[in-house]
Protein backbone atom coordinates (compact mmCIF):
# COMPACT_ATOMS: atom_id res chain seq x y z
CA UNK A 1 0.00 0.00 0.00
CA UNK A 2 1.20 3.47 -0.76
CA UNK A 3 -0.07 7.02 -1.05
CA UNK A 4 -0.46 8.78 -4.33
CA UNK A 5 -1.24 12.47 -4.65
CA UNK A 6 -4.68 13.38 -5.89
CA UNK A 7 -4.80 16.40 -8.16
CA UNK A 8 -8.02 18.41 -8.18
CA UNK A 9 -9.93 16.26 -5.69
CA UNK A 10 -13.64 16.12 -6.44
CA UNK A 11 -16.12 18.05 -4.30
CA UNK A 12 -17.64 14.76 -3.15
CA UNK A 13 -14.23 13.69 -1.91
CA UNK A 14 -13.50 16.98 -0.20
CA UNK A 15 -16.88 17.09 1.58
CA UNK A 16 -17.59 13.40 1.97
CA UNK A 17 -14.43 12.41 3.77
CA UNK A 18 -14.68 14.98 6.57
CA UNK A 19 -18.35 14.03 7.01
CA UNK A 20 -17.30 10.40 7.22
CA UNK A 21 -14.79 11.37 9.91
CA UNK A 22 -17.54 13.08 11.89
CA UNK A 23 -19.81 10.07 11.50
CA UNK A 24 -17.04 7.82 12.74
CA UNK A 25 -16.54 10.05 15.78
CA UNK A 26 -20.25 9.87 16.57
CA UNK A 27 -20.19 6.08 16.30
CA UNK A 28 -17.21 5.81 18.65
CA UNK A 29 -18.75 8.27 21.10
CA UNK A 30 -22.06 6.40 20.98
CA UNK A 31 -20.45 3.03 21.64
CA UNK A 32 -18.52 4.49 24.57
CA UNK A 33 -21.66 6.12 25.91
CA UNK A 34 -23.48 2.79 25.57
CA UNK A 35 -20.72 1.07 27.53
CA UNK A 36 -21.12 3.72 30.21
CA UNK A 37 -24.82 2.94 30.35
CA UNK A 38 -26.32 5.83 28.40
CA UNK A 39 -28.61 5.76 25.37
CA UNK A 40 -26.20 5.64 22.39
CA UNK A 41 -28.69 7.19 19.96
CA UNK A 42 -29.16 10.18 22.16
CA UNK A 43 -25.47 11.02 22.26
CA UNK A 44 -25.23 12.41 18.72
CA UNK A 45 -28.09 14.76 19.42
CA UNK A 46 -26.52 15.75 22.70
CA UNK A 47 -23.14 16.51 21.14
CA UNK A 48 -24.67 18.61 18.40
CA UNK A 49 -27.01 20.32 20.80
CA UNK A 50 -24.17 21.00 23.19
CA UNK A 51 -22.00 22.48 20.43
CA UNK A 52 -24.50 24.45 18.37
CA UNK A 53 -28.00 23.53 19.45
CA UNK A 54 -28.86 26.82 21.09
CA UNK A 55 -27.71 30.38 21.04
CA UNK A 56 -25.97 29.78 24.33
CA UNK A 57 -24.24 26.64 23.04
CA UNK A 58 -23.12 28.34 19.84
CA UNK A 59 -21.69 31.33 21.69
CA UNK A 60 -19.96 28.99 24.11
CA UNK A 61 -18.34 27.28 21.12
CA UNK A 62 -17.24 30.60 19.62
CA UNK A 63 -15.87 31.74 22.97
CA UNK A 64 -13.91 28.53 23.21
CA UNK A 65 -12.72 28.93 19.59
CA UNK A 66 -11.30 32.40 20.23
CA UNK A 67 -8.00 31.42 21.92
CA UNK A 68 -7.67 28.51 19.49
CA UNK A 69 -7.82 30.88 16.53
CA UNK A 70 -4.96 32.89 18.00
CA UNK A 71 -2.76 29.91 18.86
CA UNK A 72 -3.66 28.22 15.57
CA UNK A 73 -2.57 31.33 13.67
CA UNK A 74 0.63 31.51 15.71
CA UNK A 75 1.50 27.94 14.78
CA UNK A 76 0.43 28.33 11.14
CA UNK A 77 2.61 31.44 10.68
CA UNK A 78 5.67 29.84 12.25
CA UNK A 79 5.34 26.47 10.53
CA UNK A 80 5.17 28.20 7.12
CA UNK A 81 8.71 29.38 7.72
CA UNK A 82 9.67 25.93 9.07
CA UNK A 83 10.08 27.52 12.49
CA UNK A 84 8.69 24.80 14.74
CA UNK A 85 6.98 26.77 17.47
CA UNK A 86 5.66 24.21 19.96
CA UNK A 87 5.59 26.86 22.64
CA UNK A 88 2.35 28.72 21.96
CA UNK A 89 1.31 27.70 25.48
CA UNK A 90 4.20 29.64 27.02
CA UNK A 91 3.56 32.63 24.78
CA UNK A 92 -0.13 32.54 25.73
CA UNK A 93 0.74 32.64 29.43
CA UNK A 94 3.30 35.38 28.88
CA UNK A 95 0.54 37.40 27.20
CA UNK A 96 -1.89 36.66 30.03
CA UNK A 97 0.70 37.64 32.64
CA UNK A 98 1.42 41.01 31.04
CA UNK A 99 -2.29 41.62 30.56
CA UNK A 100 -2.84 41.16 34.29
CA UNK A 101 0.21 43.19 35.26
CA UNK A 102 -0.72 46.15 33.08
CA UNK A 103 -4.41 45.81 33.98
CA UNK A 104 -3.97 45.68 37.72
CA UNK A 105 -0.74 47.49 38.54
CA UNK A 106 -0.77 50.65 36.43
CA UNK A 107 -4.25 51.95 37.24
CA UNK A 108 -4.90 53.11 33.69
CA UNK A 109 -8.41 54.14 32.67
CA UNK A 110 -10.28 51.51 30.60
CA UNK A 111 -9.95 52.95 27.10
CA UNK A 112 -6.19 53.27 27.58
CA UNK A 113 -5.78 50.07 29.56
CA UNK A 114 -7.18 47.73 26.89
CA UNK A 115 -4.79 48.67 24.07
CA UNK A 116 -1.93 48.92 26.59
CA UNK A 117 -2.64 45.41 27.85
CA UNK A 118 -2.85 44.06 24.30
CA UNK A 119 0.43 45.68 23.27
CA UNK A 120 2.22 44.51 26.39
CA UNK A 121 0.89 40.99 25.82
CA UNK A 122 2.06 40.96 22.19
CA UNK A 123 5.51 42.17 23.21
CA UNK A 124 5.79 39.55 25.93
CA UNK A 125 4.77 36.68 23.65
CA UNK A 126 7.07 37.93 20.89
CA UNK A 127 10.01 38.08 23.30
CA UNK A 128 9.30 34.57 24.60
CA UNK A 129 9.68 33.18 21.08
CA UNK A 130 12.53 35.52 20.18
CA UNK A 131 14.86 33.66 22.53
CA UNK A 132 14.48 30.24 20.88
CA UNK A 133 14.66 31.86 17.43
CA UNK A 134 17.94 33.60 18.22
CA UNK A 135 19.37 30.43 19.78
CA UNK A 136 18.41 28.55 16.63
CA UNK A 137 20.04 31.09 14.34
CA UNK A 138 23.16 31.76 16.42
CA UNK A 139 23.94 28.35 17.93
CA UNK A 140 21.80 25.93 15.96
CA UNK A 141 19.75 24.96 19.04
CA UNK A 142 16.67 22.98 18.04
CA UNK A 143 13.67 25.22 18.61
CA UNK A 144 11.35 22.24 19.10
CA UNK A 145 13.15 21.49 22.35
CA UNK A 146 13.53 25.08 23.56
CA UNK A 147 9.98 26.19 22.80
CA UNK A 148 8.51 23.03 24.31
CA UNK A 149 10.54 23.36 27.51
CA UNK A 150 9.70 27.04 27.83
CA UNK A 151 6.07 25.98 28.27
CA UNK A 152 6.96 24.36 31.60
CA UNK A 153 9.27 27.18 32.64
CA UNK A 154 6.53 29.72 32.01
CA UNK A 155 3.92 27.72 33.92
CA UNK A 156 6.25 27.35 36.91
CA UNK A 157 7.08 31.06 36.79
CA UNK A 158 3.38 31.93 36.83
CA UNK A 159 2.78 29.42 39.61
CA UNK A 160 5.49 31.12 41.64
CA UNK A 161 4.02 34.58 41.01
CA UNK A 162 0.50 33.46 41.88
CA UNK A 163 1.69 32.00 45.15
CA UNK A 164 3.75 35.10 45.85
CA UNK A 165 3.71 38.72 44.71
CA UNK A 166 0.76 38.38 42.33
CA UNK A 167 -1.50 36.51 44.74
CA UNK A 168 -4.92 38.06 45.15
CA UNK A 169 -5.23 39.17 48.80
CA UNK A 170 -9.01 38.78 48.49
CA UNK A 171 -8.70 35.36 46.86
CA UNK A 172 -9.43 33.19 49.89
CA UNK A 173 -5.94 31.67 49.54
CA UNK A 174 -6.47 30.39 45.98
CA UNK A 175 -3.51 30.83 43.66
CA UNK A 176 -4.99 33.47 41.45
CA UNK A 177 -4.18 37.05 40.56
CA UNK A 178 -6.33 40.01 41.51
CA UNK A 179 -8.92 40.73 38.81
CA UNK A 180 -8.46 43.52 36.32
CA UNK A 181 -10.99 46.33 36.78
CA UNK A 182 -14.37 46.06 35.05
CA UNK A 183 -13.71 48.97 32.71
CA UNK A 184 -10.52 47.32 31.46
CA UNK A 185 -12.42 44.20 30.29
CA UNK A 186 -13.17 43.60 26.63
CA UNK A 187 -16.73 44.68 25.82
CA UNK A 188 -19.32 42.32 24.37
CA UNK A 189 -19.16 41.97 20.60
CA UNK A 190 -22.91 42.41 20.35
CA UNK A 191 -24.82 43.93 23.25
CA UNK A 192 -26.68 41.30 25.21
CA UNK A 193 -24.83 38.30 23.78
CA UNK A 194 -22.26 36.40 25.79
CA UNK A 195 -19.50 36.82 23.18
CA UNK A 196 -16.66 39.25 23.80
CA UNK A 197 -14.54 41.31 21.43
CA UNK A 198 -11.73 38.78 21.59
CA UNK A 199 -13.56 36.77 18.93
CA UNK A 200 -13.80 39.81 16.67
CA UNK A 201 -10.12 40.48 17.25
CA UNK A 202 -9.34 36.86 16.33
CA UNK A 203 -11.20 37.19 13.03
CA UNK A 204 -9.36 40.44 12.26
CA UNK A 205 -6.06 38.70 13.08
CA UNK A 206 -6.87 35.80 10.75
CA UNK A 207 -7.67 38.08 7.82
CA UNK A 208 -4.57 40.19 8.54
CA UNK A 209 -2.30 37.16 8.60
CA UNK A 210 -3.85 35.96 5.36
CA UNK A 211 -3.24 39.33 3.72
CA UNK A 212 0.32 39.37 5.02
CA UNK A 213 0.97 35.97 3.51
CA UNK A 214 -0.41 36.58 0.04
CA UNK A 215 0.05 40.33 -0.40
CA UNK A 216 3.17 41.52 1.39
CA UNK A 217 6.86 41.10 0.80
CA UNK A 218 7.16 39.69 4.32
CA UNK A 219 4.68 36.92 3.50
CA UNK A 220 6.56 36.18 0.28
CA UNK A 221 9.83 36.07 2.20
CA UNK A 222 8.38 33.77 4.87
CA UNK A 223 7.13 31.32 2.25
CA UNK A 224 10.44 31.42 0.35
CA UNK A 225 12.48 30.82 3.50
CA UNK A 226 10.21 27.96 4.51
CA UNK A 227 10.34 26.24 1.14
CA UNK A 228 14.02 26.65 0.29
CA UNK A 229 16.26 28.67 2.62
CA UNK A 230 19.33 28.12 0.44
CA UNK A 231 17.70 29.62 -2.65
CA UNK A 232 16.19 32.39 -0.52
CA UNK A 233 19.63 33.34 0.82
CA UNK A 234 21.16 33.26 -2.65
CA UNK A 235 18.41 35.54 -3.96
CA UNK A 236 19.25 38.13 -1.33
CA UNK A 237 16.39 37.46 1.08
CA UNK A 238 17.64 38.21 4.61
CA UNK A 239 16.84 34.72 5.90
CA UNK A 240 17.74 35.27 9.56
CA UNK A 241 15.86 38.53 9.76
CA UNK A 242 12.80 36.86 8.20
CA UNK A 243 12.90 34.07 10.79
CA UNK A 244 13.16 36.62 13.60
CA UNK A 245 10.20 38.56 12.19
CA UNK A 246 8.24 35.33 11.90
CA UNK A 247 9.03 34.50 15.52
CA UNK A 248 7.86 37.92 16.70
CA UNK A 249 4.65 37.62 14.71
CA UNK A 250 3.95 34.09 15.88
CA UNK A 251 4.72 34.78 19.53
CA UNK A 252 2.60 37.93 19.46
CA UNK A 253 -0.38 36.07 18.01
CA UNK A 254 -0.19 33.34 20.64
CA UNK A 255 0.05 35.97 23.37
CA UNK A 256 -3.19 37.55 22.15
CA UNK A 257 -4.91 34.29 23.13
CA UNK A 258 -3.82 34.93 26.72
CA UNK A 259 -4.84 38.57 26.51
CA UNK A 260 -8.28 37.73 25.15
CA UNK A 261 -8.91 35.00 27.74
CA UNK A 262 -7.99 37.27 30.64
CA UNK A 263 -9.46 40.55 29.43
CA UNK A 264 -12.47 39.05 27.67
CA UNK A 265 -13.52 36.06 29.72
CA UNK A 266 -11.82 35.30 33.04
CA UNK A 267 -10.77 38.70 34.34
CA UNK A 268 -7.80 37.28 36.25
CA UNK A 269 -4.89 34.90 35.84
CA UNK A 270 -4.99 31.36 37.16
CA UNK A 271 -2.91 28.27 36.44
CA UNK A 272 -5.82 26.64 34.59
CA UNK A 273 -6.34 29.60 32.26
CA UNK A 274 -5.45 27.40 29.29
CA UNK A 275 -6.41 23.72 29.11
CA UNK A 276 -3.66 23.28 26.52
CA UNK A 277 -4.78 25.90 23.98
CA UNK A 278 -1.16 26.23 22.86
CA UNK A 279 -0.86 22.55 22.02
CA UNK A 280 -4.34 22.33 20.50
CA UNK A 281 -3.29 25.26 18.32
CA UNK A 282 -0.93 22.87 16.55
CA UNK A 283 -3.84 20.55 15.77
CA UNK A 284 -5.93 23.51 14.63
CA UNK A 285 -3.17 24.74 12.31
CA UNK A 286 -2.53 21.30 10.85
CA UNK A 287 -6.24 20.73 10.27
CA UNK A 288 -6.31 24.04 8.42
CA UNK A 289 -3.26 23.01 6.35
CA UNK A 290 -1.62 26.18 7.72
CA UNK A 291 -4.10 28.43 5.91
CA UNK A 292 -4.96 31.44 8.10
CA UNK A 293 -8.64 31.53 7.11
CA UNK A 294 -8.85 27.76 7.45
CA UNK A 295 -7.60 28.23 11.02
CA UNK A 296 -10.85 30.04 11.88
CA UNK A 297 -12.96 27.15 10.58
CA UNK A 298 -10.86 24.46 12.17
CA UNK A 299 -10.71 26.31 15.52
CA UNK A 300 -14.51 26.54 15.56
CA UNK A 301 -14.74 22.85 14.67
CA UNK A 302 -12.29 21.79 17.39
CA UNK A 303 -13.98 24.05 19.93
CA UNK A 304 -17.36 22.64 18.95
CA UNK A 305 -16.18 19.11 19.52
CA UNK A 306 -14.80 20.05 22.94
CA UNK A 307 -17.88 21.95 24.03
CA UNK A 308 -20.34 19.45 22.56
CA UNK A 309 -18.66 16.40 23.99
CA UNK A 310 -18.41 17.99 27.43
CA UNK A 311 -22.04 18.97 27.34
CA UNK A 312 -22.99 15.47 26.19
CA UNK A 313 -21.11 13.83 29.03
CA UNK A 314 -22.92 16.04 31.52
CA UNK A 315 -26.37 15.59 29.97
CA UNK A 316 -26.04 11.82 29.48
CA UNK A 317 -24.40 11.45 32.86
CA UNK A 318 -21.36 9.58 31.54
CA UNK A 319 -17.77 10.10 32.69
CA UNK A 320 -16.01 13.16 31.21
CA UNK A 321 -13.16 11.09 29.84
CA UNK A 322 -15.61 9.85 27.19
CA UNK A 323 -15.69 13.46 26.06
CA UNK A 324 -11.90 13.54 25.96
CA UNK A 325 -11.78 10.34 23.91
CA UNK A 326 -14.41 11.70 21.52
CA UNK A 327 -12.35 14.83 21.02
CA UNK A 328 -9.22 12.81 20.30
CA UNK A 329 -11.06 10.53 17.87
CA UNK A 330 -12.60 13.51 16.13
CA UNK A 331 -9.25 15.22 15.67
CA UNK A 332 -7.41 12.11 14.50
CA UNK A 333 -10.08 11.05 12.05
CA UNK A 334 -10.41 14.61 10.73
CA UNK A 335 -6.67 14.84 10.13
CA UNK A 336 -6.83 11.49 8.34
CA UNK A 337 -9.83 12.60 6.27
CA UNK A 338 -8.04 15.77 5.21
CA UNK A 339 -4.94 13.76 4.33
CA UNK A 340 -7.07 11.45 2.22
CA UNK A 341 -8.52 14.35 0.26
CA UNK A 342 -4.98 15.07 -0.92
CA UNK A 343 -3.71 11.51 -1.28
CA UNK A 344 -5.31 8.26 -2.24
CA UNK A 345 -4.25 4.83 -1.07
CA UNK A 346 -3.12 2.58 -3.88
CA UNK A 347 -2.48 -1.10 -3.53
CA UNK A 348 0.83 -2.55 -4.64
Amino acid sequence: MRLEPVRNASLARRLGLPLLALAFTVVVASVLARLAGADPFATLGLILKGAAGSKFALLETLNRATPLIFTGLAVAVAFRAKLWNIGAEAQLYAGALLTVLVGTQLGLPGPVAIPAMALAAILAGALVLLGPAVLKLRLGVDEVVTTLLLNFIMLLLISMLLEGPLKDPMGMGWPKSPPIPRDARLPRLIEGLRLHWGFGLALIAAVSVWLIQIRTTLGYEIRAVGLNPQAARFAGIPVNRVIVKTALLSGGLAALAGFSEVAGLKGNLTLDLSPGFGYTGIVVAMLALLHPLGVVASAIFVAGVFVGANSMSRAADVPTYIADISVAVALLSMVLAILLTKFRVVRG
Binding site: R223, A224, L227, N228, Q230, A231, A232, F234
Partner: peptide, 9 residues
Amino acid sequence: HATGSIADF
Protein backbone atom coordinates in the same frame (compact mmCIF):
# COMPACT_ATOMS: atom_id res chain seq x y z
CA HIS B 1 17.27 23.28 -8.32
CA ALA B 2 18.77 23.87 -4.88
CA THR B 3 20.04 27.45 -5.23
CA GLY B 4 18.55 29.02 -8.33
CA SER B 5 14.86 28.41 -7.81
CA ILE B 6 12.20 27.43 -5.32
CA ALA B 7 10.54 24.30 -6.66
CA ASP B 8 7.11 24.89 -5.12
CA PHE B 9 6.96 28.53 -6.15
